[in-house]
């Protein structure tokens, strides 16, 4: 069980939206983690500096939240490690060919009312729900 957290989730969501708007206002870029990370892999994109800074900021964030506010960030990965790694490979291939993930398509693209992002978001939400249904309720897994 995880608790319903409406206040934290609305606050966090608003901050994610704010970061998307800020990155557009300053760098004119979509705040999509897939696109930002892909530019950091060889052949490394010429504009790697802002990408590396954005990723570093995102990694440091939970540490600062914990240090400055004493807010405990809940984390639980219930899936066995081999499946986590298989899932990583699958996600990597999927987001590369699909040109984006939850942040790029689900937030930035949807907010621009991009038809590609609307189709992508509906598609990955659907297959994720089907996958969880199959794993938990048909196969009886984690």
């Amino acid at each position: 069980m995880t608790e319903f957290t409406p206040v934290l989730s609305l606050t966090g969501g608003a901050l994610i939206g704010l970061a998307a708007v800020l990155l557009m206002a300053t760098h004119g870029r979509i705040a999509g983690m897939t696109g930002i990370l892909t530019g950091l892999m060889p052949p490394v994109s010429a504009d790697w500096a802002w990408r590396a800074a954005f990723v570093a900021g995102a990694i440091v964030a939970p540490i600062l939240v914990l240090q400055l506010t004493d807010t405990v960030i809940a984390f639980d990965s219930p899936v066995p490690m081999p499946w986590v790694m298989i899932s990583g490979l699958i996600v990597g291939v999927g987001v590369y060919f699909g040109s984006g993930c939850t942040s790029g398509h689900g937030v930035c693209g949807m907010a621009r009312l991009s038809p590609r992002s609307i189709v992508a978001t509906l598609t990955f939400l659907s297959t994720a729900i089907i996958t969880v249904f199959l794993v938990r309720h048909v196969l009886g897994g984690f």
Partner: peptide, 19 residues
């Protein structure tokens, strides 16, 4: 776009991790 997104959703649903 569609196949890649479908594959991404399968991976996301397996572990609960997205990028």
């Amino acid at each position: 776009l569609v196949a890649g997104s479908a594959v991404f959703g399968i991976g996301w649903g397996l572990s609960g991790f997205c990028p």
